[in-house]
Each structure stands twice: as C-alpha cells, then as structure tokens.
C-alpha cells in the first residue's frame, strides 16, 4: 500500500475498469433478470408476466429439458476428455526425459484455432459421403461396419459435437496439471518408493492429493466452460437432427435471435448462470470436503 494516497486517486484508477466491466458484464446480468420477467418480442410493448417464463421453462417445455440433458451429456464428454486426458498426458510427460516443452506446445495447438475453423474441420472429419477422416480411419482398421454419418445419426450426434470441444482444450488443462505435478516434491515420491509403493500408489497417495487444489480449479474451469459451450454444436448441427444435439445455450440463442422471444431467452440465460454457480458450489464442496477427510 502506498503511504500517500488520496481517495480521488483510488477512484480515478478504479473507475475505468469498473465502467467497462459494469457496462459489459454486470449491467447485462441485471437486465437479463429483469427481461426474464416479461414477454417481449422486441417490437411490440413489453408485457409483464412475472415468473411465467420460468414456469413454462420448468413445467411446460419438453425441448428445454431435452436440451438440459444434452448439455449434461456434453459436459460429461468434455470433462472426461479434458480432465482425464490432461491428467494422463501430464503424468506421461513426467516419464519422458526430453522434448517435454515441445510436446506441451504441440498439444496446445488446437486451442489456438477458431471454433469456426474447428467446425469446418470436424464437418469433414465426420463426413460419410465423401468418406471423411474418421470413417476413413475406421475402414483402414477393418472396422468399416462402424462407419456412419456421425452428425446425422441421432445416437452419435451428441458425442460427435462434444468431442471437438474436449479435443480442443486437452492441451490447456495438460499444461496446468503438468505445472502442478512438477511442483510435487521429489523427496516425497522417492521416500514412498523406498517404502515399496508402486507407481499407482505413488499417484493416488502422494501426487494427486498434492495437486488437489489445482485440480479443483481445473475442474471448475472445465465445467463452467462446458456449461457455456455453444460455438461448435451451433456450427456443426445447429441442434439437429431434431433436437438430438440441442444444448441449453443453442436453444436459448435460437429462442432469442430466431424466434425473437427475448423474455423467455433471458429466463434461460439466467438459468445458465445459476447452473454455473451451482456447479462451482458443488465442485468446491465435494472436492474440498474429501481433502479434509
């Protein structure tokens, strides 16, 4: 803290960031809550309907529930790929002796590419006619019977639109988990090994508990990112076929900007915010409590 500081200088430095943040983030949140209490198409007058939008969302709109379960599926695929992948790769990285930095950079490459480019890429990867990358690989492996139009098959489409998002950020979480694993004191591991612990025991009893705080942060990041996942499903299938890959986010987007039902869309966006807050609360509660035990 500076010894000489005036209230004016604090205000002067704080005002620009607060204005930007307030205008772009805080105000819209408040407005969303407000708009969610109205029925409004953007042209005619707003009509106050109280909690009707929320009642309709929870009780009278099967599409919403479909999209919510789909979002959970999307979340599951992303978490398994990103966190599982990150932990696996980071642990593997520790076993190699050279080229770690290069491998890290290469893993991070997909995170640098725009979602639209990834959408285009995966459209080709999943393509059935002409044969795309995935079906081609299956054919080459003699698993040609498995090949299918991944994006128009209702059974595979949800996994197909989730996987690219998982794939994209594996590198990001790998780097974070790897940095944490590096900080685990070598002496602890050596001591455990001398006591006869095998690799799995070293991992579960020493490494993982040590990186748990970072793991909580990473899980929260991955979860909130997946709950707001939008670009790739929207670009690849726009929720189709039918509602097989509709997420809460894409449904909300369509409600707002295709059906111009601003009130109902706002209610859904408030739901997405709550969903994220609940997820963050649950994760820190569950993972931190285990740490205490």
């Amino acid at each position: 803290m500076l010894p000489y500081r005036s209230r004016l200088s604090v205000v002067g430095f704080l005002l620009p960031p607060l204005l930007l943040f307030g205008g772009a983030v805080l105000l819209p949140i408040v407005q969303s809550v407000y708009l969610s209490l109205f029925s409004w198409d953007g042209i005619t007058d707003r009509e106050f309907v109280g909690l009707e939008n929320y009642r309709h969302m929870v009780g009278g709109d099967p599409t919403f529930w479909t999209s919510f379960t789909n979002q959970l599926g999307y979340l599951a695929v992303c978490l398994v790929l990103q966190l599982g992948g990150a932990l696996l790769v980071a642990s593997l990285l520790l076993t190699i002796t050279r080229g770690r930095e290069v491998v890290k950079v290469l893993y991070l490459l997909p995170a640098v590419i725009s979602t639209v480019a990834i959408g285009l890429l995966f459209q080709r990867i999943y393509s059935y006619d002409p044969v795309g990358l995935l079906n081609g690989v299956l054919d080459d492996l003699g698993l040609g019977s498995l090949s299918r139009p991944w994006l128009s098959d209702v059974h595979t489409v949800l996994a197909a639109v989730s996987a690219p998002e998982g794939w994209r950020f594996v590198g990001l979480y790998t780097i974070i988990v790897y940095a944490a694993l590096l900080a685990v004191p070598r002496e602890l591991e050596e001591a455990a090994r001398l006591d006869g612990a095998n690799a799995w025991q070293v991992f579960t009893k020493i490494r993982f508990p040590y990186i748990r705080p970072v793991w909580v942060t990473t899980t929260i990041m991955a979860t909130t990112f997946a709950l707001r996942g939008f670009d790739i499903p929207y670009l690849l299938t726009n929720g189709g076929p039918g509602q097989a890959s509709e997420l809460v986010t894409t449904y909300m987007y369509k409600t707002a900007f295709t059906s111009t039902n601003y009130g109902y869309a706002s209610a859904m966006s408030v739901f997405i915010v709550l969903e994220c807050l609940v997820a963050v609360g649950l994760i820190s509660l569950l993972l931190n409590r285990k740490a205490v035990r």
């Binding site: 772009a24 983030v25 708009l35 709950l227 707001r228 707002a256 601003y262 706002s266 966006s269």
Partner: peptide, 24 residues
C-alpha cells in the same frame, strides 16, 4: 468486495450478455 465482483465475470457465461447487449 471489488475483487469478488470481478470474479463474477470469470464464472458467468457470456451468453447472458447477448440479449441485453443486443437490446441496448
């Protein structure tokens, strides 16, 4: 308090801002 306020921006998804910003 200000610190916590900014934390909101990390947790909250961007979609919440779309409709209000469009209207504004």
């Amino acid at each position: 308090v200000v610190r916590a306020l900014f934390l909101v921006g990390i947790i909250v998804p961007v979609q919440v801002a779309l409709v209000p910003l469009f209207v504004d």
